[in-house]
Design a protein around this nucleic acid. Structure first.
Lengths: 141, 141
DNA sequence: TTTGACTTTAACGTTAACTTCAATCTTAGT
DNA sequence: ACTAAGATTGAAGTTAACGTTAAAGTCAAA
């Protein structure tokens, strides 16, 4: 732990993995999928990442948390290279998220109604009204 | 169109598919996965479904819309056969749905904030603050 | 220098919920 | 009887986002 090589500006894939919480195999996968540019290599063929790579991987992680697919992220990263505006894409994605939320909300409402049809659990057992309620729903809409 | 065979109480797989909006191959898949019981067969080996099958498939469709996986649905269907109570399972699922909604809500909030960092789109282009904002978010939490 | 931990590659495995395929057979309508 | 439309099977393909494995080579520290 002399700190000389450790503080070098180059990171091995394992170190980058630990820094970012992304597995090494995932990093290689990102490279194959053009989310990460091919890094420099050591004499022996090891990948040597610079600090820039850390930022890029963290960006990917963030975007994933925001619900972007890797394909969409690759798209966003292309923008960043071209210094174009990401707003339209992000706005589009926001709309999609809102749609998903709306759908889940309606599912939630239906599930709640379903729960209400059987307030105390089945007592006596064998009377479960949930199944008939799920069928009955069909006529409603 | 003499209505004699058409009104028979047996449906071919294609007819059941049309009635339910589920493809024939999906119906065969459901059978393999034990969501549908093996139906009767014609002399030539064709599947012959009864009305009961229509209800069952519609139940599956409904449950899928409610976000249940096929495995969970198979589970629910076992209950229905045993006339046991589905309430606990449905309640569990409701909780999961609520969790998903909460997660998406937080994503939505973050995306909104992101949009706000770039109120008029990039003008001049090449100034997109969304990328830096996505990175900056990291320090916040 | 000698470990032992780490890295390399290609290729196959994984999950869910199907779809597609190919080659053959059945059925319904005329 | 003929024919087009529809059905049969098992097996393989699809999608996303990786994980796993094998066999070999490399690096860092003591």
């Amino acid at each position: 732990m002399n700190g000389r090589e450790n503080r070098s500006r180059h990171l091995s894939i394992g170190t980058l993995a630990k820094e970012t919480g992304v597995s090494a195999s995932a990093l290689r996968y990102y490279e194959r999928e053009n989310l990460l540019p091919p890094p420099q290599r050591s004499a022996g063929g090891y990948r040597k990442y610079d600090k820039n790579a850390v930022w890029r991987v963290r960006f990917i992680v963030r975007a994933k948390e925001l619900g972007f697919s890797l394909e969409e992220i690759a798209d966003l990263l292309k923008f960043s290279v071209n210094a174009e505006c990401a707003k339209a894409r992000v706005g589009q994605h926001l709309t999609e998220i809102e749609t998903r939320i709306a759908r889940l909300e309606s599912v939630r409402a239906r599930l709640s109604r379903l729960m209400a049809t059987c307030p105390r659990g089945c007592d006596p057992p064998g009377c479960c009204p949930i199944f008939s309620a799920m069928q009955a729903e069909e006529r409603e809409t």
